[in-house]
């Protein structure tokens, strides 16, 4: 469960200060599929970094599964990311010269999972993300964009995170492939009860989530159930 209370983030640029977040407060329950939507420069990336334990807020608190993440050191943040968070990036960020399996197993390298168990875990996640088995041993740069993003999703799932953060996951994909990837997220949310936060600037993409938090100029301007999804 995510509990964010009045978090702000101020960047210092020389003498001037820039407040990217001006006090965001919300809760996300386990098993929710939430979209954080806003135009570029709205502060959604800053929020994503804080939710993903890549950064700490200037003020306010962020509880992830009951643990205060807002005041941790770099190494403690790394532990949180390793244990509780799975990232899916717009630019995929796979290791180009490594096989699909090795890419998916990468987070386990930094974990305490036994070497013998890793492959089975990775294969299971790749299947869950919907990648054909005959692609498992391909190099990641031999795959199409949609396939690459499904590998990235499998990588995000492999350490059983409490939260999956997808940062513009369809930004580099065509609409049709994007739909497939978003469908994968929906399926993982429904079938496996995964908590998913989707960061996007596109309303169409945000429509795939059950709840949409809209952010503008560092403020949350709306936070509502997505009626479109509820009807379906």
């Amino acid at each position: 469960m995510i509990e964010v209370k009045g978090i702000t983030k101020t960047y210092k640029m020389g003498d001037s200060e820039f407040q990217a977040l001006k006090g965001a407060t919300f809760k996300i329950e386990d098993g929710e599929f939430v979209a954080i939507m806003g135009p570029s420069g709205s502060g959604k990336s800053t929020l994503m970094h804080i939710l993903g334990a890549l950064d700490t807020p200037t003020s306010g608190t962020y509880f992830l599964d009951g643990k205060d993440v807002s005041t941790l050191s770099d190494d403690e943040l790394a532990n949180i990311r390793r244990e509780k968070i799975g990232f899916v990036f717009q630019a995929f960020n796979l290791l180009p010269r490594a096989t699909v399996l090795r890419n998916v197993m990468l987070p386990l390298v930094y974990d305490t999972v036994k070497r013998s168990e890793r492959k089975a875990r990775a294969e299971e996640m790749l299947k869950a993300a919907g990648l054909d088995e005959d692609h498992f041993n391909h190099l990641s740069n031999q795959l199409s964009g949609g396939q690459i993003q499904r590998v990235a999703i499998a990588r995000a799932l492999v350490n059983n995170p409490s939260l999956i953060l997808a940062d513009e996951p369809t930004g580099n994909l065509d609409t049709q492939t994007g739909e497939i990837v978003l469908g994968t997220f929906q399926r993982l949310n429904k079938e496996q009860g995964r908590t998913i936060i989707l960061i996007t600037h596109e309303p169409d993409v945000a429509q795939h989530a059950e709840r949409i938090i809209t952010i503008r100029d560092g403020n949350i301007v709306s936070d509502a159930k997505n009626l479109h999804q509820i009807i379906i």
Partner: peptide
């Protein structure tokens, strides 16, 4: 650099 960023995002510490 990006690879290092990714490794950190998936839980690698500075020491790793």
């Amino acid at each position: 650099t990006r690879e290092i960023g990714l490794r950190k995002a998936i839980g690698a510490k500075g020491s790793d």
